[in-house]
Amino acid sequence: MSAHNLQEIESFLYLESSYLDQPDLDKWVDLFTEDGKYWMPASETQKDPLNHVSHIYDDRVMMEIRRRNFVHPRSSSKNHLTRCSHIIGNIQINSGENVDEINVTSNMHVIVWYREEQQIYAARCKHILLKQEEKFKIRLKRVDLINPEAPQKSLVVYL
């Protein structure tokens, strides 16, 4: 996957995280392929999203529902102003399992402002990207928190 230079991929990850920073879930969901998934496992080295519980495991259908709920005036947990700040680093490009896939790993620190409080998340991320019509699309974003088994606070946005 040497054809993809680091800068191009970095820019894409920055764009993605800028949508989550606002958060603008409409634009963000559109970055995913039709079969795209967002996965936040609930335990370290979790292999299986179906037989083992996760914090989130959303396909496009669930993302579509979530983004509608996010702006619904009667979703009480979303009545609070939510702002995020993502910092992404240690980006590495690995060859994907399929020839058309680009497998990117990165470290991510996110501060989330929610309910008058700043919450801190640290995670290792894995993106599986595809290039469709000269644009990157996300087939999988896997977010491995450094503390997936710790009691978690309410989180109303994707990291």
Binding site: A42, N51, H55, Q152, S154
Partner: peptide, 8 residues
């Protein structure tokens, strides 16, 4: 089976 979720 399938792990435990903990919610603060």
């Amino acid at each position: 089976a399938g792990g435990i979720l903990r919610y603060d």
